[in-house]
Structures are given as structure tokens and as C-alpha cells.
Write a protein that binds this DNA or RNA. Structure first.
Lengths: 206, 206
DNA sequence: GTCTATAAATAGATAGAC
DNA sequence: GTCTATCTATTTATAGAC
């Protein structure tokens, strides 16, 4: 009797497929227009479903948004989770920068989804920021502080170091139109990896 | 006959005062909720005026937003304009960073107003980005490139250098809630100036 | 110049047939 | 499970009295 129930949400294949369609459409629309700017009409037509059908799968617009944020939260935190206290400090931190930048390149919508939410004061995400996010950062800050104390990297403020990694890498996703407007034809991600590597190598070298 | 008419918009004292009240209220509301999230009701009550009275002074919600963006565009560009080709290169660039950070501290709403607009693809600002902004950046990039060619600063990609200054300084305004959530009680602007100075000093020193 | 009342459009959500 | 039709609330904008 192989069935795989009991996992709570997804049941049939068609349900799973439609939930996925909705999540994908919602990501597209929420990341481009923010929560208020997005409409169920937009999301429905992007998903190729009718508006009432959307609300058959999710109880409300808010529920779609919330589910999206919490699903993607893990993806968002993974690169920092991977920072390894046992590895070589400079290598670990540069690899973290590289991962974050690669995520901005490959998943700009996810980055903008969070950016929209946070710029507006994170009304639907504040507890996650003060909980999961802060806990993870505190844990990694302790590692970075040890590295600095042992003279393995330069003595930099560990929290602000992390802010600067977020800021510099996510900028290429969140402010993509501005970056491209200023660069004209040049592709941002051609030069960004080497540039950011240089920034953090110079900063972190003791 | 001293009167000061002919300047086109503001006439009486009361008109000027109400236009200012509306601009201030609109900045507050648009910067917190974005264009779609803001309502005329919010803006009106924030300004202490009735909704129809708002529309006596401005033809539409869009017009308020547009006027706000174009008024603040100059303030936004001024710190970069002040970059002086005749000054000492490192001093000039560090002073630019300091000015931008100070603006994030003193005028976070203005920063978030632009952030909201740009994250969503700058639908009402794209021409400004491709015009005024790109022109100014191109001009200053030429200066930075000269400095690098003359060996007065390290050889860094000038466009990405500017992106990194924007990104690192505006982060403290745009992502303020996140920064504060992670820091717990610590005041971001206590450490940020010294941290950013260190980042750019290390990066730019030849 | 400012207000109350209201029109017109949009958007989130529900009813009920199939 | 999916659709059409519709309800209700919100929101932009206007009319018209004062």
C-alpha cells in the first residue's frame, strides 16, 4: 500500500501540480509588484488558472504570500548555513560571497520578493528576522569573531561584514534595472564576481 | 510691486503650505508602503487634509508620486555630483561614502522611496535612470578611471565601485528593520561609518 | 479652498452549477 | 476540481454645496 499520505498538504498529482503552478506564478507577481501591487487576477492568469480556482488551493492572497515566504526562507539562509567553522577562514568567506552572488544571478525574483517585504518594514516577516535569521547570524558571527581573534582574518566587525556581503550581492538582483541602466550594454555578472572577490579579499586579509 | 508670481506652481502662502504638507505625508506613506500600497486616504490623514482636498492640489495619486520622485532626484544625486576631480582621490571617494551613509541615516524615507520603485522595475523612473543618473555616473566614472590609470587609487572597476558604495550605504536605510533585527539592541550607525571607511580604504589603496 | 456625498472601477472572496 | 456569476469592501476620482 504505497501512498505517501500523512504529510499533510499535497495529495493527488494534479493538486501538487497546481500548487506548484500557483507558487511559481505568485513568485513572479509578488516579486515584481510587492504584496499590495500583486492581484489575484495577475497571479491566476500567470498560473493559467481561474481566480476562484486559486482560492480553492489557498484560503486567501495573504496565505499564498506567507507560504511563499516561509518556503523560500530556507533557500535564503542555506548559503550562510554552509559557512564551515572547520574550513579555511578566507576561503570560507569568499565562497560564501560567491554563493550569494550566484544566487542573485540565478534567483533574482526570490531576492526581490524578500527585498519588497523588508523595505516596507517586513510586516509579514519580522518574527522570522528576529528569530531564525538572527539565530543563524549570531551563530556564524561567533565563528567569524574567533577567526578574527586568532588572527586568521582581519579584525572586522562581524555583523557589518555579513551586512556588507548581503548588501553587495543582493544589490545585483534587487536593483537590477538600475545597474543595467547605468552600465548600458555591459552584463553586470561578467565583472561582479571578480570585483567582489577583490573587495573581500582585501578587506579580510590580516 | 513685489510679488514673486510667474514661477508657475505655488501662489498663496496657504497653497505652498498645503503642497508641503502633502509632499511630506506622501513621502512618509509611499516610502513605507510603495506606490500601490499607499492610499489617498493614508496620505490625506497623514497630511491632516481631506481626500478631495488632496486632489485639489494634485490631479491624481500618480501625480503626487511623480512630483515627489523628481523633486527628490536631485537630493539623491547631489553627493555624487560633489565628487571633485581636483581633490585627493582617496579623500574624495571616502568623503562620498561618508556623505551617502549620512544621508541614509538622516533621510531613510527618501532612500526607501527610491528602493521601492527600483526593486519593482522602476516603472515610473526608468527614463531618469537611463538619462540623468547614467550621465552623471558616466562623468564620474571617467574621473575615477583617470585616478586609477595614474596609480592614485587601486585599479578597480569604476562602475562596480559606485554600485558598491550605493549598495553598502543605502542598505542601512532600505533594510533598516533587518539590520536592527539582527543586531538586537546595537545602533547600526555607531559602527557603520568606521566599518565602511575601512572597507573602502583597503579597497582603494594602491 | 474645503467639505460631504457619490460615482466608477478594481480587487478579494464566496455561491453554486457542472 | 473548475468554472461563471456575484457579493462586498476598498480605492481613485468627481460633483456640487458652502
Amino acid at each position: 500500500m504505497p501512498d505517501g499520505s500523512k504529510t499533510d498538504r499535497p495529495r493527488t498529482r494534479i493538486q501538487q501540480r497546481n500548487r506548484d503552478l500557483i507558487a511559481e506564478a505568485a513568485l513572479e507577481v509578488f516579486s515584481t509588484h510587492g504584496f499590495r501591487g500583486a492581484t489575484l487576477d495577475n497571479i491566476a492568469s500567470e498560473a493559467g488558472l481561474s481566480k476562484p480556482n486559486l482560492l480553492y488551493y489557498f484560503p486567501s492572497k495573504e496565505a499564498i504570500h506567507t507560504q511563499l515566504l516561509s518556503t523560500l526562507m530556507d533557500t535564503w539562509l542555506d548559503p550562510l548555513r554552509a559557512l564551515d567553522a572547520q574550513g579555511d577562514p578566507i576561503t570560507e568567506l569568499l565562497a560564501y560571497v560567491e554563493r550569494k552572488l550566484e544566487i542573485s544571478r540565478l534567483y533574482p525574483r526570490e531576492s526581490r520578493l524578500f527585498a519588497n517585504e523588508i523595505v516596507q518594514g517586513a510586516p509579514r516577516m519580522l518574527t522570522s528576522l528576529e528569530g531564525e535569521l538572527k539565530d543563524l547570524v549570531d551563530e556564524k558571527v561567533a565563528i567569524i569573531r574567533d577567526w578574527a581573534d586568532q588572527g586568521k582574518i582581519a579584525k572586522v566587525h562581524p555583523y557589518h561584514l555579513i551586512f556588507s556581503i548581503w548588501s553587495l550581492t543582493q544589490h545585483y538582483a534587487d536593483f537590477d534595472v538600475q545597474v543595467r541602466a547605468v552600465l548600458g550594454g555591459e552584463e553586470p555578472f561578467d565583472e561582479a564576481p571578480a570585483y567582489l572577490r577583490e573587495v573581500f579579499l582585501k578587506l579580510l586579509t590580516p
